[in-house]
Amino acid sequence: MPALFSFAMLWLARRKPGTGKALILVWLPLYVWINGVPEFPSRDATNWLWLAALLAAAAVMLVRQRSLLATAHSTVLLAGLLTIAWPVIHLISVAFTLTLGAALLVGGLIYYLPNERATLPITATAVNTAGIGLVSALGGSLLVGQLAIALAVVLGAFTLAEIFSRKTRLNFPSEFLAPFVTIDLLLLVIGRVYADLPIGPVVLLLISPLVGLLLRWRYSVVVSTSLVLGALLWLLVGSGSSNYY
């Protein structure tokens, strides 16, 4: 179903390229399906993700100037991180602060992307999102894992469409990835803060999109994927046994 939505979005995007910027909206029905209708306001971190996705999508669609867009997205990410962390701010520690800071840094660095066809960064982000989903599901929270995997499916379908439509020279602006990276990072932080995901895999998953997004060489996806696999391996070896579900 999410793949169908993604392809539909691609079809729309061919007619009106700006539509691709709102791809994150495809994830919202899946989010409601998995999480349930979110309470608002809520103390539960996952109940704020829809708002972060909407605000991030709105920023991409409405703000044209790149520097303003970077500011808008960083603000959404910062507000999201603080909203997630606020109820447990009394548990603050160095690792806690570093996780939030690193997430914010990664979110901000997305604007150093080359402003051109974004297939490689899309693939790296899709792989990273899938990695967050698997690590979360196996390491702490099936809910966070499912939300991330749904996001990865949406992004993955779009990645395939993007790859197969090379000849049509669709020129999606790389900024449309920003809402995905925002939700990615928020999910990862939720997993770390509330489900105690081990710090090692979390660090690898934070580095992974950086490599994918910042390196321009053709093997960046391979390196990014290796980091994701490393996170999974770390988790599986560290936990010492298979899952119990």
Partner: peptide, 14 residues
Amino acid sequence: DDHLRSPDFFNAKL
């Protein structure tokens, strides 16, 4: 037990 403490169930930190 870790899973029960996670946001999926009791959300013990929150």
